[in-house]
Design a protein around this nucleic acid. Structure first.
Length: 426
RNA sequence: GCCUGCGUGGCCCAGUGGUUACGGCGCGGGAUUGCUAAUCCCGUUUCCCUUGUGGAUUCCCAGGUUCGAAUCCUGGCGCAGGCGCCA
């Protein structure tokens, strides 16, 4: 959520930001907000005056009672005030609700370097790392490779759990564990504290960042409980600090967590293809930073570099694709994806996603800190995928496959797996 | 699931209808004395305005009673302990 003071003090900045996102229909929200906010403040002043008056008379009654004086006339005077206050407050609250719903629709101020554009088609490729492999044979997709090696069984998972799940077996499942361990060690070595989070989370933590409609579309609800299966460990990691007051000496907080993630995946893409790329359940090593506002762009670069390095070591062909203004969701000040090469389709596809939300997320979740000069402020929050292993496995299988159907194991994973290749003809 | 207790500022804690929510810790600023620091003073919920010796607000949340609620009433949420169940 954007800082209300920015809209009050510099509405033009807020409008320019909206224009950069090409969300012209939202421009009127700023004027509407300014107008209603002025009205609210007028009512607030009026209300304060009414209360001053009420408090004054109440005090007089108290004094009169102490001195055993007659309070009848004072009581008569006092009794008419509460109704006025109630009416005034009703009007205030109504406007307050409008203001709050406007506020969440007004996007966070973006970093000036975010490339301008309308949709994901306008995202900007910043760097290409590694080269797509050249095959002397016709490469197979990960589903074919997985099934022919006995690693993946989508028929069985459809039987037990439905569409969007998988059974992963044997060396591929062990390679999955190797990836998890590799990413965990990588993050710990980079100075991030390893956290094992709850896999279920309360609605009010999610509500800080998502609307009810978004939650229902994304997260699985536990029957008869106020709990959802986590869609990413970012939520419990940030949620650890929900409504907390930190000290500047505690910052930056740098965390990494491994968890299963659960997503309904209802929406534009949906689960319309078999395979590991988009599933209801997947493994993810995540990273989160909560830092002083002055440092957040430094940590944005750090997070981005971490995921690049992590994938470079796996020798996968990847590229950095920065989200354009129109593709960034309203909370994000800047964001980029790493995308990995899919040799069959000959396209790059999203594999990690880094985001700086500046203070927008902290404001929604009530995460604050006391700075050196004793001022209370909102920290900046950032998050990034270290690795979503199912997507990494897709990339490894498809890019490192050999003619006989075996798959070369990246060197960085060999010590975890104890093998240089998996599968192939026996 | 049942029983009991609890929820007050960044933290701990006092406060059973009436000035400005007591006190301690921590933190920030200042003064003073000097030697691994001590002592003292001021400040430290949030919001609004005409920015100052200003006003309002705040005791888990939402209602209610009252001229006046941290305090009383109703409903809800959360936490802890005990018992049960399960591993």
């Amino acid at each position: 959520m954007i800082d209300i003071q920015i809209i009050r003090k510099d509405p033009d900045l807020v409008k320019e930001n909206i224009k950069r996102k090409l969300q012209y229909d939202k421009l009127k929200l700023v004027d509407e907000f300014t107008k209603k906010d002025a009205k609210w403040r007028k009512l607030k002043r009026n209300n304060d005056l009414l209360r001053t008056n009420r408090n004054k008379v109440s005090k007089e009654i108290s004094e009169a009672k102490k001195q055993k004086k007659d309070i009848k006339s004072l009581l008569k005077k006092a009794k008419v005030i509460p109704d006025k206050i109630t009416n005034n407050e009703k009007e205030m609250n109504k406007i307050r609700e409008d203001l709050d719903s406007l506020l969440v629709q007004i996007p966070n101020i973006m970093h000036p370097d975010v490339p301008k554009g309308k949709s994901d088609k306008d995202n900007k490729v910043r760097e290409i790392m590694g080269k797509p492999p050249k095959f002397s044979f016709k490469p197979k997709n990960h589903i074919k490779l997985g099934e022919m090696n006995g690693w993946l069984d989508f028929d069985a998972s459809a039987e037990t759990s439905g569409k969007g799940f998988y059974f992963m077996k044997g060396d591929l499942a062990l390679l999955n564990q190797a990836l998890i361990n590799y990413a965990r060690d990588f993050m710990v070595k980079a100075g991030y504290e390893y956290v094992e989070p709850p896999l279920m989370i309360r609605q009010d933590i999610l509500k800080g960042v998502y609307t009810k409609a978004e939650i229902d579309q994304m997260a699985y609800k536990i029957q008869d409980e106020d709990l959802y299966l986590i869609a990413t460990s970012e939520h419990p990691l940030i949620g650890m600090y929900f409504d907390k007051m930190l000290n500047h000496t505690q910052l930056p907080i740098k965390l990494t967590a491994y968890s299963m993630c659960f997503r309904k995946e209802i929406g534009s893409h949906g689960i319309n293809e078999k395979g590991l790329y988009r599933t209801h359940q997947f493994n993810k090593q995540e990273m989160v930073v909560i830092c002083h506002p002055k440092d957040s762009w430094k940590y944005y670069d750090e997070l981005l570099k971490l995921s690049k390095d992590l994938f470079k070591k796996l020798k996968l062909p990847i590229r950095e694709n920065e989200s354009c203004t129109g593709d960034l969701s309203d909370l994000k000040a800047r964001g980029a994806d790493l995308e990995v090469w899919r040799p069959i389709e000959k396209i790059y596809q999203e594999i990690t996603s880094v985001t700086n939300m500046t203070d927008a997320q902290a404001r929604l979740l009530g995460i604050r800190f006391v700075d050196k000069d004793n001022q209370k402020m909102y920290p900046h929050t950032l998050n990034n995928t270290a690795i979503a292993t199912s997507r990494a496995l897709v990339a490894i299988l498809e890019n490192f496959q050999q003619k006989d159907g075996c798959v070369k194991v990246p060197k960085a994973l060999q010590k975890y797996l104890g093998k240089t290749k998996i599968g192939g003809k026996k």
